[in-house]
Amino acid sequence: MKIPDDIETNILLRNNTPMDDFLGISPTEIHHLLYDTFSDKSPIQFRDDIDDKTLDQIPLFRIAEEFLKIIQRDKQIKLTPLGALPKKAMVELYDKRFLLDEHIESGLIKLWKEDDCISIKSARLTTELAGLVRKANGKLTLTKTGTKLLETNNRLQIFKQFFQAFTDKFLWSFNDGYPEQPIGQLAWAFSVIMLDKFGDQPQTVDFYADKYLKAFPKFITFFRHEYSTPEQQFFRCYGIRTFDRFFLWFGFVTVDKQKKYLDLDTDKFKRTD
């Protein structure tokens, strides 16, 4: 059945009309942003001028890169009986001080096991999802792709594979006790667009969380009235996943701390170059 020309025209107009709730992004662009984020038609693209200086300022990538180099140097890493990185590897990676853990730095906990530092654990798991590391028989080894990219010092391709795996495959909910629904991770690129649009001025997490919720209102239904309101829980969940463990981990923002520790209620974030 052929759709009448006037109806087809109206559909095209609607799908390509900027929407206020999506900050002027059209439904068609949102579709690409959600389901084909890195395609030519998506509003989000990798920059052409990503150089070593830029890569050096991405903390989680630096952890992943050093992790790959450890495997390259030692040929393999033998995991603990529980399938985690051994303490020796954890300490070597943490001592690079790419991402400091507040609890470790304050002395509240000591770095004994992989679960003591979620940034290192997240980086390790993401390298596997990115096809750079292979786990078999309780050991981690480099894949053929990982080996080739390291030998040719192709840092940019390692970063792209790592970043895409972190945003599309690694479950952000794995690191917290909030609902397993992809709050923050779904349409992470929309948050990047918001940061590009508003990040020149310091803003609190709530500023962005409110706009994200307006664009994706169904996420509030996954929170119930318990220890705080659904809105407060949503804002906290979005803040931890998007700002604490994505934007900061990838060097997208700097934070103006109001207290000794990161406080998502009061701290203000500003985008980096």
Rank of each mutant, 00 (worst) to 15 (best):
F98C: 02
L55M: 03
Q76F: 09
I30T: 11
E114L: 06
S106I: 04
T80L: 08
P59W: 08
V91D: 03
I30M: 15
D20F: 13
P81M: 08
H31G: 01
I58A: 08
I104Q: 01
D74Q: 12
H31Q: 09
P86T: 11
L100D: 01
R97K: 15
G107R: 04
E114N: 07
Q76E: 13
E92P: 00
S42A: 07
M19G: 00
D95S: 14
N15H: 05
L79T: 09
I71Y: 11
G24K: 04
N16L: 02
S119P: 03
Q45N: 12
D21N: 12
T9F: 12
F61N: 11
D48F: 05
A89K: 06
R47Q: 09
H32P: 00
M90D: 04
P81G: 03
M90G: 06
E66F: 05
P81C: 07
N10D: 12
D74W: 01
N10C: 03
I44K: 06
L12H: 10
S26D: 02
I30L: 13
L12D: 10
I104T: 00
D48K: 13
L33C: 06
S119F: 12
D101V: 04
E114P: 04
I109K: 14
A123K: 09
L33A: 09
I70Q: 08
F38L: 09
M90T: 03
D21H: 11
D48R: 09
P59T: 05
I70F: 07
G24E: 02
T54Y: 07
